[in-house]
Structure formats: structure tokens, C-alpha cells
Design a protein around this nucleic acid. Structure first.
Lengths: 335, 335
DNA sequence: TTGTAAGCGTTATCAA
DNA sequence: TTGATAACGCTTACAA
């Protein structure tokens, strides 16, 4: 025997079938022991038959607590954010929070829209992955009055809380190491210009300048990919014949660059040293292994979620800005 | 002058400040010309100051239309689903629909939970990427009475509508081609056993058997990665000394396998031919290029969304099950 | 041009 | 043990 209702079943539908009021059914759902055993049985049977899914809307309306947190990521096709979300959910799920995840294609305007969309669902908190936001987004966040964690970066002027690392310093350290290894003609490969690409560029620039070396940046407006890495490397080999080092804003570009080198017979690391950023799995599977900046993405996700939940449970946060640090994976591509 | 309200601002908050009722503000928001110019100005000023975000909850409650559709993907770390979502959103966004995206780690039980979660937000329709569902999930979907499109696969018994391709046939065709090219000892690399991995295995098995060749499957329970591809290849080289072909359930495994071969001096395609599935960018950036099955993921996303929206606008669907086909990318790794 | 009332699904509160 | 009522934020329908 199956439902004869055509609309989405409600508490009232169940109640009518059982012959009680929706209040009794509501009680049953919160605690089945709070109704008489006979009633309990009947309700259980009907619910089992009817395919009931409680609506979140009334809860949201009255409670003002949605038990949902929003996560905004710039891109779905970047591994970096997948691990961040793993980290977040490893904390939020056990705590009974749902995550609403959206992406905004690296555009602040689109981010604004997605923030508004998440706020319209009354998320209890937000995790952002960018430190640059539109004025309107900032205003909406302010009046929503919910905890916000910015992550990956360490924003100059955080909205609320932040968990990230110093991308400029990481790039500086890596480039300095390349220079100490004797590289003199290092080019930086950039893709779409988000803030992190820029910060890494600053680190690169500083290290080069401090050592009296020339700064060379090659960039593409396309989103980064293996193919783009090949193209930039092709360009670099033509444009800078003395090239002996390449630093890429991420591993995709770096792997593409390596592949091109292998194809045209440029030896890595003998002729050219290559380094990327984020230390993805592929860099450890390729030969030579790819030097890269290890960013603790899952840990960042966990830390961000932990901060958010702490605030939601009313705790006082003593450390709202957390630097999780980085390390250098000294792959063989560095020489 | 900024808000002195601590709770999330509502229409009533705005109305009070302006000195009208919330109904007037509501009208202003739907059509600013429907209120008197003087009122209009005042409302605009307050809204600008207050950071108002309309709540979706009342809409959901009364209208029964949320203007949101749900998308369920098995994994965030698989490129395949990113392009599917691109395709979906290229249709839903212009139509004014939001997408709520969640992932379920290839687990039907988790999928069930996520389906329920999306239903609790009253999504107007759902796009699924798996053809196997729990009984409870099926029941919930049935009583929710919303359009559902299953995609990527072509389910044996579709819930409602479907857009996909025949993964078995694709694998069969690719393996047949490898056999025609003279390969005799082809091994299949499988990772976590979702239905598509299984279907491809069937295609492989059929092609091998029809040609009187031995079937060899190597699999890992880990999720697929470049590193897993290396491990499986290492194992294959030891276990099958006559090995002259490898077919991988996806490109990540295939690339990992290729990398290992390059490292240990196994020549591709001379000694071993390698093929993958999904034709990701990296397969076109590597040398030799990786043979693979091209699956029109973005097109699937568009088709799925188009079907869904058509149903939501009451159209009669003449073609609820669509086979979008596939093609073989004959990369150099095939020989 | 603006206001009033009712209702969407659920739960807290109070009553029986 | 169960029921009645009101409330959450917004819009539709009707009234002024």
C-alpha cells in the first residue's frame, strides 16, 4: 500500500492517516517515547509507507538556526579545494552540521551572489576561500551577523576569523633555495590572477631582486591546466634561452611544463629546475618528482570548521587568526 | 549610519524604519514602480544601509517552488563531475535556477542522506550521477514527486529521465581496437568499484573472450590516483611478463601507469599500449598522448538540465532517455 | 498607493 | 498522552 498523496507529504498528511494531530507526529519524530506505544506503532507504519522528508523551511523560519554552514570555493576543477572541503566536513559532519557548497569561478561579483544565496538559506556560518570581496558582500555579511572564516590566504584585514598561510613567504623561500642551488634565470609562470598567484609573484620577485637577478613573469589569462603549462614552457624556451629555472603558481602548470621539456629533450633538473605549488599527488607520481610548496589544505579545512563551530557554540575565540604554515617538498625536479 | 539591529534584517525591520508596512516594502522589492516615489526613495535608502537578504524560507513554504535544483556527485576530486556541473549550470543559471551541489563519496547510503537533505530544501528537481540507489532513497524520491534525471550511466531501470552513454560498449570498442592492433595480453586496471568501472570491465571481458584471449583484472580498493596507477602497473609488470596492453578505468590510473613505464624504461606504445577513460586534459599534454574514451560530460550536463527544466515548465518529454554516445580518442599511447 | 489577513510546515508553549 | 494556538518571513488576494 503506497501513498495516495500527490504533493510532498507533510506532518499533517501523516497525522490524518493515523488519526492524531500533527503535533503528536512531531513529538514522535523528536522522541518516539513521548507518544503512547500504540500511537507510536501506527505513526511508524505510516511514515515508513509515505516517504516523509521533513522540511527545513519552518525550522529556518522560527529557530533561526539552520544547522547548515556554507562553503564558497573559487573552482570545482582545482584539487586544492576538494581537500579543504574534506577537512571541513570531517569536523562539521560529526557535529551535525550540513554543508552547502558553491563555487564562483574566481569572480568577486559571482562570489557576492553566492554569498547572498547562502545567506538566503540562513546558513549559521560561512567559510570563504578568498580574501577579496565586494563592498556589498561585506555589508551583507556584516548584517547577517554570522561567524565567517576566511581561509587559504591570511587576509590583510580579516572579516572575522581566518586560517591560512603566507604564500608570499613560501614562494620567497622556494625561490631563494633555487638561487642557492645556482639557478640564475628563473621565470615565474602565472595563470588567472587570483590573490595567491599575486602573492607568490611578490615572493618570487623579492627573492630575485635581493639576489640581483632579473624578474621574468609569463602569464596566461586562461585557467591553469597541463596544456597551459606546456604553452608557457614553449614560450619560455624561446623567449629566455638562458632559462635554468621555472616556478609555477601551481602544479598543473608545472607538470605541463615538465612534460613539454621531456618531449623536446630539455633535461630536468640538469638544464632547467622546475617547481610548483600545492604538492598534488601527480607531482609525486611523475619522474623526476616535482618540487612544490606543501600547503596543509585538509588541516586548514579542519581548523576553519573548528573555529566556526566554536563560535557557534558561544565559545570565546582567543586565536581568531591562525597561520598553519607550509613546507617545501624538495622534489627531484629541483636538482 | 549603520544598522542597529542585531538579528538578520527582515522586511519588517525595513518597514519600521521607513514608516510603512512590510507589504509596501515587499512590493518595492518586486517592482519599485509600484510604490509612491517618495516611499520608493526612503525604502531604497534604508535597504542600501541595512544589508537586507531576503529569506528563501517563506517562498519555499508557500510557493512550493524553490527555484533550486539539486546535483549529486560521487566525488569532488574527479574532474569528470566538474565539467558535468559546468554543463548543468550553463542551462540552469540563465533560467534563474540555483544549484545545490553535494557529494556522497560513492556510497549509496551517503547518497540517500544527501538526497534527503536536498529534498528537505524543497529542490524543484534533482540530477543524479549514479544509477544505483537505496530503497529508501527511491521511496523518498517517489513521494517528493519532482523530476529526476540520472546521468553519466544509462540505468537499466531509470527512476524518471536519464542522459548517459553505454560505458560497456565504449570499453568493448576500445579493447577490440587494441586487439586488432595486435595486442594479446591486455590487463584491466580498476579502482573503487562503482557501476561504471564494472560496466567497462564487462566490455573489456567480452572483447577479450570473443577473441579467445585471457582476462586479467587488477584492482585496488583505494580511490583512483596517479600513484595508484603506478602501483598497479608495477604489479602488472611483475605478474604478467607478456603484458602488451593496459586499459584503465580512468585517466588518472593510466597516466600513473605511463609514468611508471617511462621511469623503468618500458616503452609506450612499442612494448605496452595504454588507454584510459574520460580523455582529461592531462592525457593530451603528456607524451605520447593518452588514448582514451571521450565522454561528452558538459553536453550531458546541458542535456540533463534541459530535460529537467522542460519538465518543470510542464512540457511533455518525448525522449526521456537520451544516449549521448562517446568517441575514442586515438592517442599515441595506443600505437 | 498602501494596508490587512491568511497561509505555507513545523515546534514551543500552554491547556486539557 | 494528546491537542490547540501562535509564531517564524514573505506573498497572494482582497480591502480601503
Amino acid at each position: 500500500m503506497s501513498s495516495t498523496i500527490k504533493h510532498r507529504p507533510t506532518l499533517t498528511d501523516i497525522a490524518e492517516r493515523v488519526g492524531v494531530t500533527k503535533m503528536t507526529v512531531s513529538r514522535y519524530l523528536r522522541d518516539s517515547n513521548s507518544v503512547a506505544p500504540a500511537t507510536r506503532k501506527k505513526i511508524a507504519a505510516v511514515i515508513d509507507d509515505i516517504g516523509y522528508v521533513p522540511s527545513r523551511a519552518p525550522d529556518i523560519l522560527s529557530n533561526r538556526s539552520s544547522k547548515a554552514i556554507g562553503i564558497l570555493i573559487p573552482s570545482l576543477s582545482n584539487q586544492v579545494f576538494a581537500s579543504l572541503i574534506q577537512g571541513v566536513e570531517s569536523i562539521t559532519k560529526p557535529a551535525g552540521y550540513q554543508t552547502l557548497m558553491t563555487h564562483y569561478g574566481y569572480s568577486p561579483e559571482e562570489e557576492e551572489k553566492k554569498i547572498i544565496s547562502l545567506l538566503s538559506y540562513h546558513v549559521d556560518g560561512l567559510i570563504l576561500t578568498e580574501s577579496i570581496h565586494t563592498k556589498r558582500a561585506l555589508k551583507m555579511l556584516a548584517s547577517a551577523n554570522i561567524p565567517v572564516v576566511e581561509t587559504i590566504d591570511l587576509p590583510e584585514r580579516p572579516i572575522d576569523m581566518a586560517v591560512g598561510l603566507d604564500h608570499r613567504a613560501a614562494a620567497y623561500e622556494l625561490i631563494s633555495r633555487m638561487i642557492q642551488n645556482g639557478r640564475r634565470h628563473i621565470v615565474y609562470f602565472a595563470a588567472r590572477l587570483d590573490r595567491r598567484t599575486q602573492l607568490r609573484c611578490e615572493g618570487y620577485r623579492q627573492a630575485m631582486t635581493e639576489n640581483g637577478l632579473a624578474v621574468h613573469v609569463l602569464s596566461t589569462q586562461e585557467h591553469s591546466s597541463f596544456t597551459q603549462g606546456r604553452l608557457l614552457m614553449t614560450q619560455a624556451l624561446v623567449q629566455y634561452p638562458e632559462l635554468d629555472g621555472v616556478f609555477c603558481t601551481n602544479d598543473d602548470l608545472a607538470i605541463g611544463a615538465m612534460m613539454l621539456c621531456q618531449e623536446v629533450g630539455v633535461e630536468i633538473p640538469m638544464q632547467v629546475a622546475i617547481a610548483g605549488c600545492n604538492a598534488l599527488d601527480i607531482g609525486k607520481a611523475i619522474s623526476p618528482t616535482l618540487a612544490s610548496i606543501e600547503t596543509p589544505r585538509e588541516a586548514m579545512g579542519r581548523a576553519a570548521a573548528t573555529l566556526l563551530l566554536a563560535r557557534l557554540s558561544g565559545e570565546v575565540i582567543k586565536d581568531p587568526i591562525q597561520d598553519v604554515g607550509y613546507s617545501i617538498f624538495a622534489g627531484k625536479s629541483l636538482g
